[in-house]
Design a protein around this nucleic acid. Structure first.
Lengths: 143, 143
DNA sequence: CATAAACAGGTCATCCTTATCTGATTTAGA
DNA sequence: TCTAAATCAGATAAGGATGACCTGTTTATG
């Protein structure tokens, strides 16, 4: 019930790029340094984000990575799902035919609803918002 | 980003007990059969639920398991956290000092808020409700 | 051509998850 | 008291996910 470290790293990387400003190409080494991400691990993550179409890479000297679209067009959900795959709170939410009790199970709707809400929430946050905010005063989940 | 099979099994087991009715002692083997749970695996789960105080066990012939409190006093959250531990959407939500960027991170509040909402939702569902409902017509999370 | 950088991939250790098995212990009932 | 029924505790094992490293290969710049 937790996103992976990879997804967390990916979010921080995209945030860094969003903050770097428009059309600013950045070396992944710089991102790793600034965000305290193991450099060789970040390479893999960048590769996945590139395949997902969230950023463009350019090789060679003066190469680097750059966001594929405006930060306002990249949501938290985009990044999380690019790395961890689709959000599924329980196996049965995946589709039909997974659970024997599907038809009469009173729990499945609970998971479905909760998942819809979570997805909606992550989709509502984009990286233009995140890049400009410093930490907002907000609820703390502890306790 | 998914509850474990164990947690899912635990939920189904508790649901079965809730449906069995008040003061009805049931053999774990029966639960395993009815809910299609590997019997020897269920034993471990039952043990954890017992430690968590959600059900009582009695050994010996005619022994079995029984809910420790009224189904209305057991929430979905109780069962999930008894097995999987506290719900944490991201490592940083656990507490202070985990993340270097805590103070200025614009993402942490998003996770905290989403987690609070998810926990609230799971806490709002108890097994008295689940036991009496057949499947309600509800949103489907697919798509 | 030399250098800087991304890229592809393989490897590795560790932990988690799921599951099974075995033996010990307890209890009800004949 | 004996036996069958049932939980309890612990060891074990396969498999996969996770986090991380390392080595070449390709490509663009100067």
């Amino acid at each position: 019930m937790q996103i992976t470290r990879q997804a967390d790293y990916a979010i921080r990387a995209v945030l860094y790029l969003a903050r770097a400003g428009k059309g600013q190409r950045v070396a992944t080494g710089d991102v790793a340094d600034a965000q305290h991400i193991p450099p060789s691990f970040l390479a893999k993550i960048v590769s996945q984000l590139s395949i997902a179409g969230l950023l463009h890479t350019s090789r060679g000297a003066r190469g680097g990575i750059i966001l594929a679209r405006d930060p306002s067009q990249i949501t938290l959900l985009d990044v999380v799902e690019a790395i961890d795959g689709p959000i599924r709170l329980n196996e049965c939410v995946t589709g039909e035919g997974i659970c024997v009790f599907e038809e009469t199970c009173p729990i499945k709707p609970v998971w479905c609803d909760a998942q819809v809400e979570l997805v909606r929430r992550l989709k509502s946050v984009n990286f233009a918002m995140l890049a400009q905010d410093q930490q907002t005063e907000s609820a703390n989940a502890i306790g």
